[in-house]
């Protein structure tokens, strides 16, 4: 296998994968724990505005935030590598995600 110095180095690629893996794992664990606990509590008879309802909301938001956090750490990683092409691309993805948050907020619902 010949090394190709003008492309992302093996070490940088490995670091990006490790960071992304960490963010995804943490997000899944946080959201699954909140969703499971919230679900059990709400089935045991609590009302919507309660620790159960709050846990479910946190769980859903953590679930939605995980892929966004993954894009944010990727952007940071590309900035530190001075890879402006991929910094721009990941920033565009973040703008698109932000646009969907703005669209959601415009419908006047909590987020």
């Amino acid at each position: 296998m010949s090394p190709s110095p003008h492309h992302t180095s093996e070490r940088e690629l490995f670091r990006l994968e490790a960071t992304v893996g960490l963010v995804l794992r943490a997000g899944v664990m946080l959201s699954s724990a909140c969703l499971a606990l919230g679900l059990v509590l709400s089935l045991s008879g609590a009302a919507a505005v309660s620790p159960a309802g709050l846990l479910l909301q946190i769980g859903i938001l953590a679930l939605l935030a995980t892929p966004i956090a993954r894009v944010v750490v990727s952007t940071a990683e590309y900035i530190s590598e001075r890879d402006w092409r991929f910094t721009t691309l990941t920033l565009i993805v973040l703008v698109e995600l932000l646009a969907s948050v703005v669209a959601a907020l415009m419908f006047g619902r909590k987020l």
């Binding site: 966004i68 419908f107 619902r109």
Partner: peptide, 26 residues
């Protein structure tokens, strides 16, 4: 994940995402 998030946020904003049922399905 990123693809579905862009859509799911909009459904969430419309109040179409029932947290307890989404939690169950997840």
């Amino acid at each position: 994940g990123v693809t579905a998030t862009a859509g799911a946020i909009i459904y969430y904003g419309h109040g179409q995402l029932v947290p307890a049922l989404a939690a169950t399905a997840v």
